[in-house]
Simulated assay, not measured.
Amino acid sequence: MKSWKVASAGILTASILLTGCTSEQDAVAQKTETKTVHAEKSTDKTKITSSKKIPSQLQKPLKIASINQFSIGTFSSQYVSGVKKQVEEFGGSVQVYNADNDLSKMAAYVETAINQQVDGILIDHGRADAIAPSVKKAVAQGIPVVAFDSDINIPGVTVIDQDDYSLAWNSLRTMAQDLNGKGKIVYVWVGGFTPMERRNVMYEAFKKRYPNIKEVARFGNASQNTALDTQSQMEALLQKYPNKGDIDAVFAPWDEFAKGATRAIQQAGRDEIKVYGIDLSDEDLQLMQADESPWKATAATDPADVGKMQVRFLYQKAAGEETPQVYSVQPHLVEKEVLPSSKISMSEMGKYVEGWGKSDAAESPWMKTLKEASK
């Protein structure tokens, strides 16, 4: 298994800026012996054929539950697409549960997955105070669990994240540089979500680092129509601040916020206002690439790549391999100026942003064989 990296340069920056951020705990998952067998390829498509290189625990198709706090926007849909694609490539099946931002429903879905005796559980977002008891129950019953963008801290559960501190700081620092350290900004934010809380930590540090950049307004809420709601709120704010110089930039640490703010600014013809965001999807790319788009930069990871990585960690756990307690995905800064004039998709981003979508984390030698055997 290739080595994994837990820390990044952005986190080192965050640790210098902040004193009070809690550190993640070391990996505690125990390493167990991997057994293998050999057999001829079967013509039965419902079974994964045996191979000397495939761990014995994976000689049958795995049944996976993917439990998501919400499914809002194209980032979430591309993340789920990545999860499904990787599970299917490994010959397994995945049932996706969307809790519609209801944490009690999310916990209930974990219980459902346990009762259905799934082979593994993927957690997307969620808060420990609501779902930790159910997750602990799954671990106690020997069900591998891997979480994404959650504050869960349970021995044996691998938690991956987008390095939210680095994401926020990369975007904020770019905005500060473009403003030359002075200006008036709008902050679009909502609490109650682990990644948003972490990004807000960096925003608070940013205000201390750049005291001449003043927040003139703040708003934000999460709903099934977040982008549209944000657009309406931004339109009202632009009417309140109608003059050039009233607002210089918008910091929107979620692409749904950035989309809404961008469209409002475009429709109002306020091209002097620039948008700096977090996250990226195909829809976001179209907005950024548009002529005279105010969306200047975003810090992001590839959501589909994150979903695939999470699945690989889960399969490693199912195979009895050691996995880290925490893993931070290396984020990228994507600036409008590096994008081509012709429209591109997320699958083409690697041509313009080095390292995009090419993570080899959680790769084991037997995975290639498993894919071949599962065709």
Rank of each mutant, 00 (worst) to 15 (best):
Q117N: 14
E33I: 13
K84C: 11
S51H: 08
K31L: 15
T112W: 01
S134K: 07
K41P: 15
S77F: 06
K45Q: 11
V139I: 08
Q117Y: 07
D149W: 00
Q69F: 10
S150P: 05
D44P: 09
I64S: 10
V157A: 05
N101R: 06
V37Q: 14
I114C: 13
D124F: 12
Y79R: 06
K105R: 08
D100F: 08
N115V: 13
Q57K: 13
S50W: 02
V87Y: 06
I64W: 04
G142I: 03
F70V: 12
A130H: 02
A168F: 01
D163W: 00
K105C: 03
A147K: 03
I64K: 09
S93K: 12
K63Y: 05
A130L: 07
A99C: 06
D100P: 14
I48K: 00
F148L: 09
V145F: 07
F75I: 02
F70R: 14
D102L: 05
A138L: 08
K53T: 04
A128G: 12
I131M: 08
P55E: 00
Q59A: 15
I143W: 02
Q95D: 06
N68E: 07
I160D: 09
Q86Y: 01
K47V: 15
K84N: 13
L103A: 15
I114T: 04
I160E: 10
S166P: 09
Q141D: 05
Q69P: 10
S71Q: 06
H38V: 14
N153I: 07
P133D: 00
N170E: 09
A132P: 02
F148K: 12
A39E: 08
V83I: 11
G92C: 05
G120I: 01
L103K: 12
T32M: 14
A128N: 01
G91F: 01
I154P: 07
I54Q: 02
Y79Q: 08
I114S: 09
V87K: 09
T158H: 05
G82L: 01
S56K: 09
F70H: 10
A168Q: 00
A130V: 02
E33G: 14
S66G: 12
K63M: 11
K63I: 04
G142Y: 00
S76Y: 02
Q95H: 12
K45E: 11
I64R: 04
I123A: 03
T36Y: 10
T49K: 11
G120C: 09
W169F: 07
K47S: 11
T34W: 05
P61C: 09
Q30I: 06
G142M: 01
I72D: 04
V80G: 10
Q162F: 06
T32W: 06
G126D: 00
V80C: 06
N68D: 10
D163M: 05
K105I: 04
S42N: 05
S50M: 12
I121A: 13
I152H: 10
T49I: 08
I123M: 06
K35W: 05
E111C: 03
E88V: 01
Q116H: 12
Q30K: 13
G91Y: 00
V96P: 15
V139C: 10
K35H: 09
K45M: 14
T36V: 15
I121G: 12
T112E: 10
T43E: 12
F148H: 13
D161S: 15
Q86G: 11
A132G: 03
S56H: 04
K31D: 14
Q30M: 15
I123T: 01
K60A: 15
I64N: 07
K41A: 14
A147D: 03
T49N: 11
K136N: 11
T34V: 15
